[in-house]
């Protein structure tokens, strides 16, 4: 257990965290703003990776590849949105259906289960190999720019009439409809926006790790939720502004990856990693419930 090993791993954790932070911001839009648990993300993050990989291998400009991945991600959200609103399928199940079908879609895009991206031969935006570089090649620079751009655009969007109506849809469906808001359209729009960001994150992730795998999104929703919840637990008292709340989600993702690294460094068998992830999220989800129970008892006695 050499501490130097852990310190060496930290820059990688931070980069990975920022990439997954963009995905987690997408999860925040559905889970917190729309009040819908969307499981499409396990598929759409790999879709983003697959689309970007194919485009990059064809020599397309990497920024354009990111944009195309975002748009294709929005289409995955559209599919879930149609399942949910037009076909009346509960949101969680609608997401599972899209996620499952995306496995086939992703295989079709990639042509096989796994494709490598060679950072020396291709023009990539970021690469894991530069993670400790003290130069402009360091992935953190591009990642910080993309994250800042995403947060700024979302901040502006949710301040518009349309953005406000989306927030109202999540906050109070009945009220939103009484104010003339088409809540179904808004849910579809929110799912599209969310999965667009998730796919964007996938497009960055495949470049960073140097490959795309159709299974790379397995359990992504759990990481996204973990980041959202960690961000809220740590920063909800000090961050009131919407942009800062999104930043908290991104920081939450970084903290999540650092914590996982520490646990691995302490000697956890990597086979148990997914189980650990799930249990961590389960406990964090339970905290508000336990808190409520505890406080209710208190007030009950007092009354």
């Amino acid at each position: 257990m050499e501490i130097i090993k852990l310190i060496n791993a930290l820059p990688g954790c931070v980069s990975q965290g920022v990439i997954w932070g963009i995905m987690a911001i997408g999860v925040y839009i559905t889970y917190r703003i729309l009040d819908v648990a969307d499981l499409t993300v396990d598929g759409s993050i790999a879709t983003g990776g697959a689309v970007a990989t194919v485009l990059l291998m064809a020599g397309v400009n990497p920024w354009i590849a990111l944009i195309v991945a975002f748009v294709v991600g929005m289409l995955t959200g559209l599919a879930t949105g149609i399942f949910h609103t037009f076909m009346g399928i509960p949101a969680i199940l609608a997401g599972i259906l899209t996620q499952l079908s995306l496995y086939s879609v992703n295989l079709a895009i990639l042509g096989k289960a796994n494709l490598p991206l060679n950072a020396t031969k291709l023009e990539l935006l970021i690469s894991q190999r530069n993670v400790r570089a003290l130069s402009l090649d360091n992935p953190l620079i591009v990642l910080a720019i993309v994250t800042a751009g995403v947060i700024a655009l979302l901040y502006l969007f949710f301040g518009t009439e349309l953005g406000c109506s989306l927030r109202a849809t999540g906050a109070n469906n009945a009220m939103a409809r009484a104010q003339g808001i088409n809540t179904n359209t808004n849910k579809v729009l929110g799912l599209m926006l969310s999965n667009g960001l998730v796919a964007l994150s996938g497009a960055l992730l495949c470049q960073y790790q140097g490959f795309t795998d159709v299974g790379m999104g397995r359990g992504a929703i759990v990481i996204g939720l973990a980041a959202v919840i960690i961000g809220e637990v740590l920063f909800s008292k000090i961050f009131n502004n919407f942009a800062l709340k999104l930043l908290a989600v991104s920081i939450g993702a970084v903290i999540y990856f650092v914590v996982i690294q520490v646990v691995l460094w302490l000697g956890l068998d990597t086979d148990f990693l997914k189980m650990l992830q799930a249990l961590v999220v389960a406990v964090f989800l339970a905290i508000p419930y336990w808190k409520g129970k505890y406080f209710n008892k208190k007030t009950g006695k007092g009354a």
Partner: peptide, 12 residues
């Protein structure tokens, strides 16, 4: 804005 289309103008 009840009954009006909602676009990308500022919410308030």
């Amino acid at each position: 804005r009840r009954g009006q289309p909602r676009g990308l103008k500022w919410g308030i």
